[in-house]
Amino acid sequence: MAVIRGGYWRSSEANNFPPESIQTGYFTHLFYATVAIDEIDARTYQIRLSNIDQTWIGTFTPKILQKKADVKCILSIGEDTVAGRTTLSNMISTPDGRKSFIIDSISKAREHGYHGLDLYWKYPATANEFDMPNLWLLFKEWNNSLKEEHNRTGNPKLSLSTIVYFAPKFFPADDKKAYPFKSIMDNVDFVNLVCYDYYGSQDVEVTAEHALLYDQHDKKSTHYGISSWIDDAGVPEGKLVMGLPLYGRRWELVDQNEHGIGAPATGVGPMDYSDILKFNRGHHADVHVVNDKTVSTYLYAGQDWIGYDSKSSIKGKVQYAKDHALGGYFFWALGMDKEYKLPQQGSFTYTYINNALLIDIN
């Protein structure tokens, strides 16, 4: 498997950022994000296409391949809402539900020319204690169906991936749920880790980096999550793909003279990287790169404080992925960095075969 340089494109942003706007040269894999699951009844689950999806799901792959013929286009399925997570939980809870979904997902991928399928269920946080055992079954049955379809039709096998929480076990510590590690190792081609959103305005009343690589005081960090997937869950490095955000988080300082990481503040919300650049230019903000302890960046101007990834911290994270022989990285989400300042920092030169590192020509 070649190293992944991925990006998620959101169909909800199609009017402002259509697929032809993507600079495909920076990517090996592009994900159509996302289509939802429709719970028709207790046994029947199929992909639900919104009006937007009906317009774009069939044109995404042709438009991408016109620009770069070797990009893999992946259909990402799921919905990060309470209702969406409940539907996913219901779907995986019965053999008929899983079978109905699997058959329809393969059919939709083939109909619209995709090269793989991706389960988008970042936070399996329903109260159902059987979610993780049922997810184990879904991955197994899904992979078996993909193999069977490949053998029966002679078409190239569709890849199977999933976007998951940054660590294999959930926080807080009293949450006993953990991902089905063995099924992921056996059935999923690669795992996209959500290595961001560690902190937000709902979490703490101080400034915080939401995607820091290292944290000397807390386990909510990319290094901790990746190490846990490798050391505790036993998932090979080559299957792990590091998530990189194309947005930051904004805070309002209590005292503009106290402006470091951890300064008292009120959270405001997310901010696209393109808007961060515009803010910086308009306010002549003070920018601080903290590559020695966290591998992150923040800026402040007056009472405004924004924690984010700059070109420097993205470069540091990509180097970390190379140094630890990871399967690659992906960006969430395309269109948030319209000038492609951050994807320009990514590069890989080694190749995996059967999840084993083959060669590094750097």
Rank of each mutant, 00 (worst) to 15 (best):
K147M: 13
L119H: 02
H150E: 14
S76P: 10
W142Y: 15
E149Y: 09
M271W: 02
I92A: 05
G243M: 07
Y320G: 13
S313Y: 05
D292C: 02
P270L: 09
I64G: 01
Y340D: 14
G260V: 12
L213C: 01
D186F: 07
Q344C: 07
W136R: 14
S50K: 07
D309Q: 08
T294L: 07
Q202V: 13
C195A: 15
I276E: 11
L160I: 10
V289G: 00
V268M: 08
T59P: 00
T86P: 00
E149M: 06
L193H: 05
L137K: 13
L135R: 04
K338E: 12
F348Q: 03
G25Y: 08
W251N: 03
F171I: 11
Y120R: 04
Q54R: 15
V206K: 08
S21D: 13
E209P: 03
Y198L: 08
N291M: 11
K322D: 05
Q303M: 04
Y45C: 07
I52E: 08
I226D: 01
V295F: 00
L277S: 10
A178E: 11
A333R: 12
V268Y: 02
I184V: 11
I57M: 01
Y179R: 04
G262N: 06
E141F: 04
N354D: 15
F181T: 11
A301F: 03
T266E: 10
W56E: 14
S296T: 14
E205Q: 15
W305K: 09
P236V: 07
S183D: 13
A265K: 03
N257R: 11
A125M: 03
M336I: 00
R249H: 13
L135E: 04
T222Y: 00
V241P: 01
H115V: 08
A109N: 02
H288G: 00
F279I: 07
K341N: 14
E237S: 14
K176R: 12
D197K: 04
P156W: 07
I92C: 06
T28I: 06
G260F: 09
I306F: 02
M336H: 15
F331E: 02
T81W: 00
I64Q: 01
S221K: 05
A173Q: 08
I40Q: 12
S145M: 14
S313G: 09
I52W: 00
H259A: 15
L75T: 04
K176D: 10
A263W: 04
H259Y: 14
I64T: 01
S105V: 10
I276V: 15
